[in-house]
Design a protein around this nucleic acid. Sequence first.
DNA 1: TTCTGGTGTATTGTATACCACAGTGAAAGC
DNA 2: GCTTTCACTGTGGTATACAATACACCAGAA
Lengths: 242, 242
Amino acid sequence: MEREAESITETEATGSPGLVVQPIDANFSLKDRIYDSLKQAITSMNIYAEDAELRLDERKLSEQLEISRTPIREALARLEQEGLVHIVPRKGVFIVRKTKREVLEMITVWAALESMAARLATEVASDQDIAELRTMFADVESEEAKAAIDEYSSKNIRFHQAILKLGGCKLIQDMSDNLFIHMRSIRARTISEGDRAKRSVIDHMNIIEALEHRDAELAERLVREHSMNLARHIEQHVDYLD
Amino acid sequence: MEREAESITETEATGSPGLVVQPIDANFSLKDRIYDSLKQAITSMNIYAEDAELRLDERKLSEQLEISRTPIREALARLEQEGLVHIVPRKGVFIVRKTKREVLEMITVWAALESMAARLATEVASDQDIAELRTMFADVESEEAKAAIDEYSSKNIRFHQAILKLGGCKLIQDMSDNLFIHMRSIRARTISEGDRAKRSVIDHMNIIEALEHRDAELAERLVREHSMNLARHIEQHVDYLD
DNA sequence: TTCTGGTGTATTGTATACCACAGTGAAAGC
DNA sequence: GCTTTCACTGTGGTATACAATACACCAGAA
């Protein structure tokens, strides 16, 4: 009975000629839009630059965005939970600079997640998906000869995100995205140091081959070690973190 | 100079005779306390019971806690970011029931994190820490003979948290704690099914031995497979999830 | 009797006013 | 001239009022 009623309603709605209105996005919530806006703003700025402005002013933001403080505060509460900002009672809202130790821990978690994704990928990814990975990689290889470091950096990022996606676990992707926000500027700076770019390319090639051979153990190990190498490099060579 | 001034101020405050007030926790923020309170309340209730009340009423909460809605809303915003509740604009706040797929993904991530923690533990944990793990386990073993499932369940949990702690990576512990909230009731229900308790004990024993032998590869694999077995079991036998 | 339209209520979203506290600077006293 | 104190300003914290909407209920007409 109830199911029939639903069917009728649907038929009426979709069957009416003319005047086809698409459902208005009811998620129009200031809070959410501010959250996205602030998050985008914070992630796009280089947090670790010396002269970075770390302070956020609720009132100034409310004036710039021309809305009240309330939704801004709720957005900030979310950002704090996410670890992007830190709210000190009666002091202010500050963009969080991760300490070296925290960055290393994030990379460790990243390694755990991405290596698991690689393992899963050997089981669930299609041959075509893996093949596309190689195509992407081929581009990088040609670029690398020209030492186009910056270009490589963004492709490097896309490669890792592709691995995560191939694992098919949405949660891994989401959690990695959050970690990625903080690792982004770090990774961009470290890739140009030493011969890391070249070694990174080799690592990627090996990872792709492991995926192609559906070798779960090898793929997991290579991905993990690739990330942990980054951690080791930062541990030894990065000084601009607390 | 500035530090001196602070010292003087502290001396004045603590030095006053009688009326010795312990330094009030400056983090005394309603928002945070409400957050903790709500989180505790949500996690302690069985979310997956059929008759569970999934709706949260801002106004009712504000009356019960005798505070205004504002800090409650900020606490709820944090809980939403954490995935514990879902806020539907102009509808209300609802406690999130994870779908079966989401639970499986959480266990997958858990497996990735805990196996990484186990790997790290083989490098950084002290012999004494690992020995304590065995002590804890010995208790479990004696209990298990009496088939004290419920008791075992909490010890099972403590075992896994101990592994995570031994890894020495704070971020892994924090992230696992969040996952754990959702897995808690699931794990409690599944442990009593079939011979899972017995097999679980055997797994734990093997994990401890791997840690004692500082065998990173083996420890990682055992921990991962232990969790993934839980995932497989839920995949096949659990029906009360969406 | 049933469907449609409207109205009323409950609940969330947003704005704003006020409060408590920290930090700073100026003024007064030593 | 230096130190100390006090007030002012600016910040986030909280409360509350108002707006918007969803839902239920009811009345009237077909």
